[in-house]
Design a protein around this nucleic acid. Structure first.
Lengths: 355, 355
DNA sequence: TATCATCTGGAAACCGGTGTCATATACGAA
DNA sequence: TTCGTATATGACACCGGTTTCCAGATGATA
């Protein structure tokens, strides 16, 4: 004994857990039958099923996910691939996914990626090929990358993209109607009497940015309001970039009486910049954000914003992936919705302009 | 063909990937030898190793993690168990863990739990037993639950607890010196001339709350300042609870000239409540928060706060779990640090009192 | 040169499930 | 009574690695 082993000991640990063989032996059936019970095969004798279930329950038997993963050539993990800098949004998405996974055997694995990196696609490919995930959910903005979606197809990994507009066929997509929502929010500002409205757009090349900008322009066009280019500033969804953009707009003269920011971080930055300049919000400047993340309710004044149903979208995305599982449950073939509507949340940051 | 299969088709998908057998055949050695190469066994002929590595590289062979997990009786997943409501903090922890896992074969799996639920421990036990995680990281506040740590021991799962004070032996713990940090922050307020300082404490029963409160009391005691109970209000780390607590303190008369909030959310709430009452921060009220989450820099005025090195702590926690892996690397036995120091970040929310 | 310890590498079992296919029983029809 | 035919179950190989155990090769020592 204690003969020095050839190999490094690594992670070995004994496990005293009951296996499918134990269950089979004790209930006097074969492994395969136990497997059938576990997988809810419809071809079983009720009496047999009952007996096996009883033994399973007595033993506290739990099937080994690793063994299943090996045999089925896919594990029970849903991956979340994202490069989103907004913590609240990422966490909301995680929450939505986990809600969907609740009660199933699936778990969630998180994988941030670096859009900037040239090796990004290779990294993801390596990741997907190694892990043999059941499926992945792509969070914007990286979800807008078509090459990534193609890659998933290529390696045979199910995927659902979350987005601000249609990106793909509904089976692979969950989206919100950003354009229409922003149109509505902007129209609200116009209703209130604003005519000089600034836009802090999202970064160039982002679908969400384009959609929101178009919604903004739609509303102005409807009201036949001209939009000088100077009233559009670009940010990249961070507070800091929003600050810079806000400063540009607030230094204009005449100054816009309202600003629509393409997300709450940048909206909060507008409020911040205004305060630094002694401009009162909302008395002298109305502000609307987008997302309805907690920050919008926590700053003063609380931000009027567009509520983006991100948790529901994420839940739906995860459920889309799981469809075709469930087997026996046959949870009706009510397919998950693919399009979600955003709504305007009116808070204190908007009033009619003084003029 | 198309004979209706007995079983549900489930997740099967063909995989055309090279296996260890292919590698063995092509390089003219046995599976075991390939396995030795992969696991960096020191007992190999260099020539053999070279040849095998070449074939591996040619084939683009990647070992199947599911098969390894089955054989080794542990997978390559690190779990993050948390019940923390602060998105930024959870994400920071995820970031730290992922930094540590970078370049290894490990992935991170996230598991939020509900402290309130009576079934919490059973849920976690089930989760750990099923998944056979390599190890888990426990985030506060749930990390302070000793029963949870015992449970990990019991099911044979490595764990590291993150905390605000020593919770356990250093092998299972990464902590910060909250008490001393808060003492310093409070001393700073006292230096500035404040004598009537309010505290918004964390929720009763939380270690972090106790530590921070004690640090606060330490500083006052050192300066021989009496602390009436009315100057202490309790929140539960959320913005809303901070608002209620702040209102209580701000309605006092005489009103405190400074408030220490046990986290940034509640600190931001103090600023918010002050503004609602027309109290100027920092002219009429100084505020200090804790954590240095982004919100502290984004509100106006930016919050002086205690920087909690949460990313480093999380990274260190993950590295602690991975110790004993690495095998050949033998990355020196420099053990990961267990205690981290928090530092005061001075921003605009503190000035000497006017009086 | 004979002997023994040390390397090196292979065959086969194993981890714990699943698929395929064959078989045994039950039952209705010819 | 004799066949299908459907239902219920089992034997066995397989997923892709790791480990045990053993044997041949090598080199040092007597």
């Amino acid at each position: 004994m204690s003969s020095k082993s050839e190999e490094v000991p690594f992670g070995r640990r004994g496990t005293g857990k009951p296996t499918i063989n134990d269950v089979a032996r004790l209930s006097g059936v074969s492994k395969k039958t136990v497997s059938r019970v576990i997988n809810r095969s419809p071809l079983l004798n009720d009496e047999t099923r009952r007996r096996v279930l009883e033994v399973i329950s007595d033993l506290g038997y739990v099937p080994n996910p690793q063994a299943r993963a090996l045999a089925l050539r896919t594990n029970f993990l849903i991956g979340l691939i994202h490069d989103n800098p907004n913590a609240q949004m990422v966490l909301n998405v995680q929450q939505g996914i986990l809600e969907a996974l609740q009660g199933t055997d699936f778990e969630m694995i998180v994988r941030p990626v670096d859009r900037g990196s040239a090796a990004m696609l290779d990294d993801v490919r390596h990741f997907l090929e190694r892990q043999r995930l059941y499926g992945v959910i792509l969070l914007p903005p990286i979800s807008e990358n078509d090459a990534l979606a193609r890659l998933c197809d290529e390696v045979g990994c199910r995927y659902v993209r979350m987005g601000s507009a249609e990106l793909d066929d509904p089976d692979h997509m969950v989206a919100s109607n950003d354009r229409e929502a922003v149109r509505g929010a902007t129209a609200y500002l116009i209703e209130q009497g604003h005519r000089s409205i600034g836009l802090i757009a999202g970064p160039h090349g982002f679908r969400s940015a384009t959609e929101r900008r178009q919604g903004f322009e739609d509303a102005l066009a409807e009201a036949k309001i001209k939009l000088p280019r100077s009233l559009i500033a670009e940010g990249n969804y961070t507070f800091a970039s929003g600050l810079a953009a806000a400063e540009k707009l607030l230094d204009l003269s005449p100054r816009p009486t309202a600003i629509f920011a393409s997300n709450d971080e940048m909206g909060a930055a507008v409020v911040h910049a205004a305060r630094q300049r002694g401009i009162d919000v909302p008395e002298q400047l109305s502000v609307i954000g987008f997302d309805d993340t907690p920050i919008s309710a926590h700053i003063w004044p609380p931000l009027t914003t567009v509520r983006w149903p991100i948790v529901s979208m994420a839940r739906s995305a995860a459920l889309k992936l799981l469809v075709s599982v469930g087997g026996a449950e046959a949870e009706a073939d009510v397919s998950e919705p693919s399009m979600f509507l955003s709504t305007l949340v009116k808070r204190a940051s908007v009033t009619p302009p003084k003029t």
